[in-house]
């Protein structure tokens, strides 16, 4: 069998998701956002929800998520995506409503909206990209920046006396009565990506079945902010991030 025999439409087993358009993404090489975007696009199509989805974009690197996945989107003010999503879901209860937020947006300026939306048990999903740094503004300290980690606003490393401690908001979310499913995943290997996809799908299905609020954190890399290569960023994440942000389901009220 020749290469030409194999490369035929009927033999296609994996490609760019159909909901993802051809616009070249603005993300840096190797950015985790791209993988999570693909998962979101795949899952919406697999659930047949193209005409019933409202996505809410954050402020941060994913501010332009609406350029890449062909669904209806609202771009929220910084940190307010969960409030925007709350109204969308309450007013359109048969819609799949999700927010897509980074650590600055969700765990810093939007902490109030995040906690209250989750605690009210809004039937939505929050996808939380945690790379422990501000990407779009150029590598400043995030609430999730690890101790000792260097950023442009803690150039000598994060230390508690000056900067306080990393905020583990997903652990807080798991302790809230309103949450149904809280999970922390990563997308650095094929198996991790498969698990992350399962988690997001589970969260989306919960949202559609009217079960609690759902949070999926994706521990991610930021090779530009971390000033390293994409491959080394993945290694650094495994070595340092997973110790503080432990991978796995923190809470699942559907499959306890």
């Amino acid at each position: 069998m020749t290469r030409e025999d194999i490369i035929r439409p009927e033999n296609l087993v994996y490609g760019k998701p159909q909901l993802m358009n051809d616009v070249s993404m603005h993300y840096c090489p190797g950015c985790s956002h791209g993988v999570v975007h693909k998962l979101v696009a795949e899952i919406i199509a697999e659930m047949g929800m193209e005409e019933k989805t409202i996505g809410i974009c954050p402020v941060g690197c994913a501010v332009f998520a609406y350029r890449y996945i062909d669904i209806d989107w609202q771009e929220a003010a910084h940190g307010r995506a969960p409030a925007v999503a709350t109204a969308c879901k309450r007013l359109w209860d048969d819609r799949l409503v999700f927010t897509y937020q980074g650590d600055g947006d969700l765990a810093c300026i939007g902490t109030c909206e995040t906690i209250h939306t989750l605690n009210r048990g809004e039937k939505i999903t929050i996808i939380f990209i945690n790379n422990a740094i501000y990407g779009m503004t150029g590598g400043q300290m995030a609430p999730t920046t690890l101790m000792g980690m260097k950023t442009s606003t803690c150039p000598y490393g994060r230390e508690p006396q000056l900067h306080g401690y990393p905020l583990n908001i997903t652990d807080i979310a798991a302790s809230l009565e309103g949450t149904a499913f809280v999970s922390r995943q990563s997308v650095h290997t094929t198996s991790a990506i498969r698990k992350a996809k399962q988690a997001i799908r589970h969260a989306f299905e919960n949202s559609m079945n009217g079960i609690g609020s759902n949070l999926v954190e994706i521990v991610s890399t930021c090779s530009s902010g971390w000033k390293t290569s994409p491959v080394k960023a993945n290694e650094w994440m495994e070595e340092h991030m997973f110790e503080h942000y432990k991978i796995g389901d923190l809470k699942d009220t559907v499959h306890p």
Partner: peptide, 16 residues
């Protein structure tokens, strides 16, 4: 293709 963040790779397999 799964790990590619930009969705650049299409994969074909005998039998599809």
């Amino acid at each position: 293709a799964i790990v590619c963040p930009d969705g650049c790779i299409s994969v074909y397999r005998e039998g599809g």
